[in-house]
Amino acid sequence: MNLLLVRHAQSANNLLYAQTGSSEGRHADPSLTELGFAQAQALADFARTDATWQGVTHLYCSLARRAVQTAAPLAQALGLPAQGLAQAYEAGGLFERQEDRTPYAVPGLSHAELLADNPALLWPADLPAAEPWAGGFEAYEEPGVLEARAAQVVEVLRAAHGEADTVALVTHGHFTQFLLRQFIAHGNAYFRVVNTATTLLTLPGPDAPEGWGPLVDWVNRFDHLRPEQVSQ
Rank of each mutant, 00 (worst) to 15 (best):
L180V: 01
D207K: 15
F191M: 10
R66S: 01
E142I: 11
G92N: 07
G162S: 13
F37Y: 14
W133Q: 13
T176R: 00
Q76K: 08
D100L: 02
V68F: 04
V216P: 01
Y60L: 04
R158Y: 10
R149W: 04
D117G: 07
E141L: 10
Q83C: 03
P103T: 10
L180C: 05
A44D: 05
G84Q: 07
T171M: 09
A116F: 08
V193N: 15
D217V: 10
Q152E: 15
L121R: 00
H186I: 10
G213K: 05
A164G: 02
G205A: 04
A197T: 06
D100Q: 04
P209G: 00
L78Y: 03
T70W: 07
P206H: 12
A159D: 03
R158D: 09
D126M: 06
E147D: 15
H161S: 13
M1E: 04
F178S: 12
A42N: 13
Q177A: 07
Q39I: 01
W212F: 12
F46P: 09
G211H: 08
P132H: 14
D50S: 03
A189K: 00
D117V: 14
Q39S: 13
L5F: 07
V68T: 07
D223V: 06
W53V: 02
Q87E: 11
G213C: 03
A105R: 08
A77P: 07
V56A: 08
H111F: 01
V167M: 01
V167N: 09
E90H: 04
S23D: 14
Y60R: 00
T102G: 06
L121V: 14
T57P: 11
P143D: 11
F175S: 05
R181I: 10
R66H: 06
A105P: 09
L203H: 08
Q19S: 13
A47N: 05
Q98G: 03
A189M: 11
L59M: 00
W123H: 02
D217R: 09
A44L: 07
M1K: 11
T20K: 05
Y140V: 15
R181K: 13
L215T: 05
Y60G: 00
P206I: 14
V153G: 03
P143G: 10
F222S: 02
G93E: 15
V219P: 00
H8F: 07
A130G: 15
N220R: 01
D100P: 08
Y140H: 13
A38K: 13
G173C: 14
N13H: 01
T49N: 10
A64M: 15
P209F: 14
L80S: 11
D207C: 11
P206T: 11
D217P: 03
S22P: 08
E142K: 12
A44Q: 01
A38C: 10
A112M: 05
N188M: 14
A185Y: 13
S110G: 09
P124K: 06
G213S: 04
L200C: 01
A139R: 15
H111Q: 13
A77N: 14
H186P: 02
G205T: 09
W53C: 02
G205L: 05
A71S: 05
N195Q: 14
P143S: 09
H111R: 04
Y104I: 04
A82P: 01
Q229Y: 06
